[in-house]
């Protein structure tokens, strides 16, 4: 009995630590969200709903919707790009597979700031893509492509692509290819094999990746501030601005709690939909 318990006890330690280090700040954030802002200090202990009431002003509501939109769009686009890319990579020779995996791992090593700066330079009017397009005559009046929503989205994709691609890699490399061959012999045209057999079999992995990227992009701070316009900024930027810039910790905490609730509802909904689809098929 003692021997059977040991591994659980070992596993309980990091679990307990994670819980403490996640739940304690979360509880603190929830408590602070009901406090009052002290213009001369940090906050005053109180129990007010004012911080939550402010969310329902059009500004915060718009920012929230924008955050959900940019994160969802970024997550869907990055999965749409990474999934077929990895589908092609896993059928390459071992040498090329290794090359791509190393390249993707190297991309993951780059910090958000470096990626942001790289895109800033590439999209700048004076030394990047616009200048090149102007030089070859495709753009008469080249202008900087950033800051813009598109530039921010490209930043998101660069950040998430390697992560998503590597998430798909083991499952895709080990997939039973004879299932696709069976679909072919049963009369499925080669291009339809992808939609009829490959995609449905990876449906749960695709949903998990979309959810992971959605949550990841919701919390991204550097890309919106570097590549996006102020009207493209997400809630993370606004929360940081309120909590750090305006020293309004209670409002920042309330906005964070609301975003957390929103995120949990969306993830729950997606997981439920995925499970229902799985059960139906």
């Amino acid at each position: 009995m003692k021997r059977a318990l040991d591994p659980h006890l070992i596993g309980l330690f990091p679990l307990a630590m994670m819980s403490v280090f996640f739940l304690a700040p979360l509880a603190f954030m929830v408590v602070v969200s009901f406090y009052e802002r002290d213009p001369l200090g940090f906050y005053n202990v109180a129990f007010v709903w004012d911080n939550y009431a402010k969310f329902f002003s059009s500004f915060y509501y718009t920012v929230s919707m924008r955050s959900l939109w940019s994160s969802s769009l970024g997550a869907i686009v990055v999965v749409l790009l990474a999934f077929p890319a990895m589908y092609i990579i896993v059928d390459m020779s071992r040498r090329w597979q290794l090359f791509w995996v190393i390249l993707l791992l190297s991309l993951m090593c780059l910090s958000e700031v470096i990626i942001g700066f790289a895109w800033l330079i590439l999209m700048s009017e004076s030394s990047g893509i616009p200048k090149f397009l102007g030089w070859i005559g495709l753009w008469e009046d080249p202008r900087s492509l950033s800051p813009s929503f598109g530039a921010m989205l490209i930043g998101f994709i660069t950040l998430g692509f390697s992560l998503v691609a590597l998430m798909f890699y083991p499952q895709m490399a080990q997939r039973d290819r004879s299932i696709e061959e069976a679909a072919l012999t049963l009369g499925t045209p080669p291009l339809r094999v992808f939609t009829k057999v490959v995609l449905p079999n990876f449906w749960s992995a695709i949903i998990s990746s979309v959810v992971t990227m959605f949550v990841y992009f919701l919390g991204v701070f550097v890309m919106p501030t570097m590549l996006g316009r102020p009207q493209d900024w997400n809630m993370t930027v606004i929360i940081t601005d309120k909590a750090v810039g305006d020293a309004n910790m209670p409002l920042g905490a309330a906005l964070s709690v609301i975003m957390l609730v929103f995120t949990l509802i969306i993830i729950g909904g997606l997981m439920l939909a995925s499970r229902k689809k799985g059960a139906a098929s």
Partner: peptide, 27 residues
């Protein structure tokens, strides 16, 4: 291949895991 009208049983069987028995046969 998809126009040859051959029925093939694979070593791994290669049944479609996302479809039930009837759907597999009717595929």
């Amino acid at each position: 291949c998809h126009k040859r009208n051959v029925g093939m049983v694979f070593q791994s069987l290669a049944l479609f895991p996302h479809l039930n028995v009837g759907q597999n046969i009717a595929y």
